[in-house]
Structures are given as C-alpha cells and as structure tokens.
Design a protein around this nucleic acid. Sequence first.
DNA 1: TACGCTATGTTCGATATCGCACAGAGTTGA
DNA 2: TCAACTCTGTGCGATATCGAACATAGCGTA
Lengths: 247, 247
Amino acid sequence: MSDLHRPDQNHLLAAMPAAEFDRLAAHLELVAMPVGNVLCESGGKLQHVYFPTTAIVSLQYVMENGASAEIAGVGNEGVLGISLFMGGETTPSRALVQTGGHGYRLKASLLMQEFNRAGVVQRLLLRYTQALLTQISMTAACNRHHSVEQQLSRWLLSTLDRLPTNELTMTQELIASMLGVRREGVTEAAGKLQQAGLISYRRGHITVLDRFGLNAHACECYAVVKKEFDRLLCDLRNRHDIPNVAG
Amino acid sequence: MSDLHRPDQNHLLAAMPAAEFDRLAAHLELVAMPVGNVLCESGGKLQHVYFPTTAIVSLQYVMENGASAEIAGVGNEGVLGISLFMGGETTPSRALVQTGGHGYRLKASLLMQEFNRAGVVQRLLLRYTQALLTQISMTAACNRHHSVEQQLSRWLLSTLDRLPTNELTMTQELIASMLGVRREGVTEAAGKLQQAGLISYRRGHITVLDRFGLNAHACECYAVVKKEFDRLLCDLRNRHDIPNVAG
DNA sequence: TACGCTATGTTCGATATCGCACAGAGTTGA
DNA sequence: TCAACTCTGTGCGATATCGAACATAGCGTA
C-alpha cells in the first residue's frame, strides 16, 4: 500500500519545497475516504485538513427545504479545510465524499503552524484558495445561465480531471443531487450525450469516450476554471519557487 | 468634504488597530467611484485596492454570449482587490460600480507590504475573503434553487445593508443585469413586492418600506450570508484583537 | 409646452425544468 | 431461481422563465 499511496499524488503536497514538506511529512496520515462520508457538516469544525489523492470531496450547501447544490469540488488538486487558515474555522457548506478513495490528513494545528510561517506554504494555500474561489464563482454563473446538459458535461470533465481513468462510479441520482437538479433531468441529459457518442453508461457507471467532444458540448465555465487553476497552480508541480507577489 | 468622508466609514479600515491603520492612513486616497465605472475588467490587474465607503461595487462574470451574472457585491463592509494578496493578481470576473459614491484606494504594493507582515491586517483580510467566499457560495446555491422574486428581495436587502438610506437609485434594467435575469422578470417581481407593500418604486428609484417583511419574502440565503459576515467581521468594528487561530 | 428618450408595463407563444407516476431493467442475495 | 431492491427510462401536465414585440408613462430639454 505504501507504494500505491504517496503524498505527492496530491498536487499541493507535491508542490511544497522539500524543507516544508519534510516538516509535515511525518504527520501526514493516510486515510480511507469512503463514498458518502460526510467529513464536515454545515458549520462544523474540522479537526484535520484533508489532501485527497484518489478521493473527491464535494462542497455542498443544503437548503432548508432539503434541496442541495454543489458549490465546488476538491480532489487531488487541492485541500479540504481552507476555513481553518482563512480564520473562520467553519463554513456554512458541508463536505461530502463524492468519489471514494484515499487522502492524507493533517492535524489542523500543524497546518496552522506552517501557514503562520508566512512562507511558501502560505502562498501556496492562498493561491489554491483563489482558484477555489474562481471555481465557486463560475458555479454561480453557470447555475444562472447554462442548461442541465451543459452543466453535466462540465461536471463530468472536472470530475474526470481528478481521476486516473475515464470511468466514474456514480449513479444519476447522486449526480443530480450534486448539480441540484432532478434525477430525470440527468437521465435525459446523459441520454443525449450518449447518443452523441460522447459517453457511455450503465447502472452506476459512466465512461467518457470523447473528452474533446464533451468539452465542445460543455459551457465555457469548464475551460475558464481549468485555465485559472493551471495559471495559479498547475505549474507548481515540480516548481517550488512560488513567487511572492509583494510589491 | 473631509468631514463627510472618513476612512473608518469602511468597516475593514475601521477594524484595523491604530498602529496598522496609521501606517496606511497617509497613503489612503479618497476617490469618487461613479456608477457604471469599470474598475477592473476580466483578467485585468488592479493597481490599487479599493475600500468603498458609500459606493458599491458588483463583481460579475460576463459570459461569451454577453449574458452576465453577479458573483458578489463589495461595499463599505469590504475591499475590492483580494486577488492581489491571494497571489493570483487577477481574476476572471470584472468589477463594476453598481452604486455611485466614494471610497479610499491604496496602492497595491503598500497593501502587500502590510499583508506580508503576517499580522492583524493579514488575518483581517483573510477573514473578509472567507466571508466573501460564503457570499459567492450562496449566490451559486441561490441561482440554482430560488425564484426571481426571492433573489430580488435578497439583493435589495444586501444592497441596503451597504447604504445609509432606504432608497436605492437603480433602474430595473440594471438590477436585471446584476441578477442575470430579464428586465421584465424584475418588473414583475418588483410589482409583486410593491403590491405586498414591501417596497415602492418610481423610475430609477426603489424605496424599501418594510425590511422585516422583505426579509420574510427573501430566501434563506440573505440571512445565511449576513450571519456569516457578522460572525467573521462585524464584531471587528471597535474590536482590534482579531484572534490568531493558530493551533 | 412639446418632443424625444428612457424606464416601466403588458402581452404572447416558446422553452426548460419541475413534480409526479409508473414501467422496465440491472443487481444482489436468499 | 426467485424476490426484493435500486437504478434508469418515459410520459404527463404544471410552472417559471425566456425572447420578442409593443404600449404607456416619467423625465429632461429644446
């Protein structure tokens, strides 16, 4: 297992310089993150931050009437628990494991120690937070203007970016609750995408056949978010000189 | 004018301890922020951060087809330009002055110097950023699930919170572009609110008559955001000991 | 005062999504 | 093999919003 799971499968951990990473490495704890697990309820305080490697966590808001909406997703590109270092300790959204897998967790206090050194790790985490903010912003715009079919395409692509394969294990019911639409709406949209030869699916599994085609089918939101993540973070992999933008 | 305009009309500036504030005060520049002014285009880099006092800035995303959606608003409770200290320098959203007024601006480099001291001001700005993040998150959820009438109520209330009066100068057309809906939809929703005795309006002006009633008419999103802002920031006014949440 | 511009009000059909009901198909386990 | 359960497919009317066209009303200005 120690061969299969490595901290640097998480891009943020991988982007940390050796000195900083070494300080944290001994305290990183590999944990299973089974699907459906609620890591943090609305308003709840996390005891750890989570760096997913193969798992994907969905940040959702659940409304008073029970309807839910995904705000953003967190996979191997990021970290769950930004409210700890942002100073609020809690958020009104909940964190639900959407795709089961693993991740590394770190005691909140240890992350805070590192963050408060005000060095590379702080800058890295703040950049990630800005990227997350862009993701949430685009979710807002997308929810306003785009069709279920476009949103499903976007969601499939961004989920796929966090997985090693082209297949995701996920019922339409679950996808519907992520997107905040009816299950039937997902059935219909998925049917169209399958007819177009972009995906194929069977009970609980979706395989993306044509990523480029799906991209063309999705709204611009996917590309905007991806570009912004790349700009802010992707080049961090194997590049440990995160610039300090101090004037 | 120097009597009418004071930096502490902005809550973030007011929340800074004397030592920190004094370092910045000499560099704060009072500027007029006329309605319609675009302070920052999508992807553009700000040379200053803006602390509005009487103005309100709308953060929007404009889609490829020209449709727009408000992501969040920034008034006297906050600051425009978080991407500077978050490390990304730019964001995909644009900043448009929605309500004309004034604000204080500060050279980006000077804010960065203060931010990089990793002291009270940094913690204050990060807490504000988290509050903004909550606002954006709720915009996303609200866009998904709530009616135009509910959203208009929410928007009126949150705009009013940033103004000294109960009247806002704003055409329905402009409100429509903020909410990302048709102008006719705003006309219809505003008509209902007026019939219910909650607001009254005439060509370009809206007066809120019954704030409590409007609150009851709005979706939960308004209250969630307000509560979170209060929790994270409101008690900062006249309270300069922002706790360091280091573990 | 009269004109012209802009804001607001109203109507219409078109469309997307919803909410519900139920049928069929796949999976699991006794 | 069969039963129970879950997931997916489909059809229906109801509703909200859209998109466009046009009517009316308020306001500034010549």
